[in-house]
Design a protein around this nucleic acid. Structure first.
Lengths: 261, 261
DNA sequence: CGGGTAGTTGATAATTTTCAAAGCACGTGG
DNA sequence: CCACGTGCTTTGAAAATTATCAACTACCCG
């Protein structure tokens, strides 16, 4: 991947268009840009790269790449995955519309994970070279970034807890509940509610640390208990209370991880 | 725990003492304060709470506590742990001298994990109420915080990878190697090198997700292979290359996680 | 209609947990 | 200075969970 570190100077006739796209951006309130008032939106609008569409399966960036850009998800789902030498993959997390991903503690270091589009995606790429000075000069932006990174860390901790102290059933339930919550900002409550999660059993397994076979068996067991149905990315929650109980999750911790103040 | 949100006004006769303690602080270059030049050190010196000594085993803050303070470790080891209802604990990470811990994405939310002293510790408590305005006004400080939080997230991701794709042997080796690296800023190289890690087998197990019995067996197997010896917190690395190989770690990713730029 | 990906199912094997009990080390108080 | 208690560690055997391998099915897309 060779992506320019910073965008070329913006032609005058594009300034208005870029500003407008930022002002109408659906992700604005949840991504890094949140603290920028309308009057200051140009700071980001002028340095951002043009929004980028990629097909399902595309690699957004790869392990070992230099960190040239961070991204806001405008549409679609992204998986952040780490691969080992023997072809094993671990899904570290998911980036959903509105999420900001790709920031690294040490910008000179190569990336420790790659980002893969699970669906067709539309991304807003923010070049590192353009963002650095913004962050170094705007405390609100830097503070926002710190909160988003703390959120990332909290999600990773939660993922770790899930992995270490629950069995397959619990981990899968936890993953599903967390994703439902991120989609709707609420726990599933209505029996029969349907969620579209663009996940294969293999991806679920890479997230929970199980073989796809075992994910299949676990989901079937939960289905047999009348808890849910999962077929080809379509999750039907038949017994929300049971699913939430299996996940061992309360609304509070999940809610705390949504909108950092 | 009822800790004041912000420190009381500092008596004049203490200003010099506080400034001096910050200027000679051993953790200064690695914690949040790093970007503050000597001339600006008062910003932190005047809001910090007096350094606090706690005995081994003390709870620094507990799950569900309000987030009133963050901490820099001056001396000793701290474990960040999450507990579930049934008494199961997960060690999310360790804070070593120089590390900054306790920041949360949403300061209004109760803490999602607790912090426990593994040894007698000396901490520098930074009250949230005092830090907020500093972070909101000093971009360098906010940027530093963002990097430290990204570092926390990267460590959590690495922990997750370790947990998901390695067996007990690999995870334990990984943990030991990572801690050695954090202590000395280098991979163990000299056969026979000794590291003092104030860990019990139970704590190692809570970090790697194993029972203490299995940790014991795994360590003994590694010892039988001539790789290491671990007795009561004293790790002797007999065959550094073998240990590092078992950990499946290269210096680069570890180094990248030390000193964010 | 055909090819390929995704999911299913069953049998076997490996890893790890759990339970129970005993051994060891160290600090405390006599 | 020694005995004793407590917490950490070790050891063994049985049981549980999950991976692996292999074959087979179902579904989607062209």
């Amino acid at each position: 991947m060779d992506v320019p570190l910073s965008a070329p100077p913006v032609p005058l006739n594009q300034v208005a268009a870029r500003r407008a796209s930022c002002l109408s951006c659906p992700a604005r309130s949840s991504t890094v840009c949140a603290p920028l008032p309308d009057a200051a939106i140009d700071r980001v609008a002028l340095i951002k790269n043009p929004s980028r569409r990629l097909p399902a399966g595309a690699t957004i960036y790869a392990e070992q790449d230099q960190c040239a850009e961070c991204f806001t998800v405008l549409e679609g789902w992204v998986a952040l995955v780490a691969a080992n030498d023997e072809g094993g993959r671990v899904v570290l997390g998911f980036a959903l519309p509105g999420d900001y991903f790709g920031f690294v503690p040490n910008p000179l270091a190569p990336r420790a994970h790659s980002a893969v589009a699970l669906t067709p995606v539309r991304l807003c790429p923010l070049p590192r070279g353009g963002m650095q000075p913004l962050i170094a000069s705007d405390p609100a932006l830097a503070k926002r970034l710190a909160h988003l990174e703390a959120l990332h860390a909290a999600r990773a901790d939660e993922h770790l807890v899930s992995t270490v102290q629950h069995d397959a059933r619990g981990r899968i339930a936890r993953l599903l509940v967390a994703l439902c919550f991120r989609l709707t900002r609420a726990l599933p409550a209505a029996p029969g509610q349907v969620f579209l999660l663009p996940l294969t059993l293999a991806v679920i397994g890479e997230s929970t640390g199980h073989s796809p076979e075992h994910v299949s068996r676990s989901l079937h067991r939960m289905a047999a208990e009348g808890m849910l149905r999962f077929r080809r990315g379509r999750l039907t929650v038949l017994n929300p209370a049971a699913l939430i109980a299996a996940a061992g999750v309360t609304e509070r911790p999940l809610a705390d991880m949504l909108a950092p103040a």
